[in-house]
């Protein structure tokens, strides 16, 4: 397994960053184009001169021809707030490395595009991993921070985590939630909170073949890895098949919930290399133009 700070891994991230182009709002000049007009270098449009406009923007050639004062508008180049919310609950134990790789890839792309990146860990509470950071120089600290983060908490409480996220007064930006979405309670409310707060939301569901296939047979005492709650069951082929069906139904429910809310959704299996997933997800998920 590659470490996040390995040169090889970073080379892969560099390749991915070349693909990213997206127009979103921001306050700082960055490599990213926005819909706002401002003081950039790329011409966008003309508009009528009004009192208070910068007279340096008047296009005197137009005035000479048409005797109307018009000013040139330029595309405003802004930075983007990207929030990575990575599930670090114990249900992600077998998928943490993969989730970290995905988070590292997206974070690298964000920092490389001079976007503002914030990374949080989700479990029974919100745990900051990277404070809001900007610039390419923050890539290595971001990778080290991700690498050193382990699973925490005793449950997955999305709602509580999002409430904590909102209470920190973050500006709207692109929220990427990386999780298996195996949440005992309601997860839709948490998504709603983010949508209501004008975040662009993208859910990336991490899955493993073990999630669908149950190899256990016979009398088993199942213990929840998060809550410690246990239950005695007898698992036979019928129960195993029914379980696989239930997991599929649950994943479908997560996908439908996202679709209903206009939230981008993609699922990623740990069996597929993360770079392929990032390419596909970002292309088809709408994050990359």
């Amino acid at each position: 397994m590659l470490k996040l700070t390995d040169p090889e891994f970073i080379r892969k991230l560099e390749m991915l960053s070349l693909l990213t182009r997206k127009v979103l709002g921001g306050t700082l000049k960055a490599d990213r184009k926005t819909l706002k007009k401002g003081s950039g270098t790329t011409f966008a449009d003309y508009t009528e001169y009004n009192f208070g406009d910068d007279y340096r923007s008047i296009d005197w050639n137009i005035y000479a021809r048409l005797e109307n004062l018009v000013i040139k508008l330029f595309e405003l180049e802004e930075d983007l707030h990207i929030y990575l919310l990575v599930d670090f609950s114990r249900s992600m134990l077998s998928k943490t490395v993969f989730a970290k790789q995905l988070a590292a890839a997206i974070g690298y792309i964000a920092l490389n595009n001079l976007d503002r990146l914030t990374v949080y860990g989700l479990a029974d509470h919100l745990q900051p991993i990277i404070r809001p950071s900007h610039g390419r120089s923050r890539v290595m600290p971001m990778l080290r921070a991700l690498e050193s983060t382990e699973c925490f908490g005793e449950d997955t409480d999305f709602e509580q985590c999002i409430k904590e996220f909102q209470s920190r007064g973050h500006r709207p930006g692109l929220c990427v939630v990386i999780s298996d979405f195996f949440v005992h309670g309601e997860f839709e409310k948490a998504l709603d909170y983010l949508v209501w707060n004008r975040h662009d939301l993208f859910c990336l569901q991490v899955s493993s073949p073990q999630d669908f296939k149950c190899e256990l047979r016979g009398d088993i005492e199942l213990q929840c890895v998060e809550t410690g709650e246990s239950k005695r069951v007898t698992i036979g082929p019928a129960e195993a098949a029914r379980f696989a069906e239930t997991v599929k139904e649950w994943n479908l429910k997560v996908q439908r919930s996202c679709e209903r809310r206009g939230i981008g959704f993609s699922s990623a299996s740990v069996t597929i290399p993360f770079e392929l997933i990032i390419q596909n997800i970002l292309r088809h998920g709408g994050l990359v133009t």
């Binding site: 992600m92 195996f182 088993i220 199942l222 213990q223 239950k231 069951v233 997991v247």
Partner: peptide
């Protein structure tokens, strides 16, 4: 005495049973 196994999907197992 049954063997103890840890699972992240106990809530889904409860649905099955």
């Amino acid at each position: 005495k049954p063997e103890r196994h840890q699972s992240a999907l106990l809530f889904l197992w409860e649905k099955v049973f």
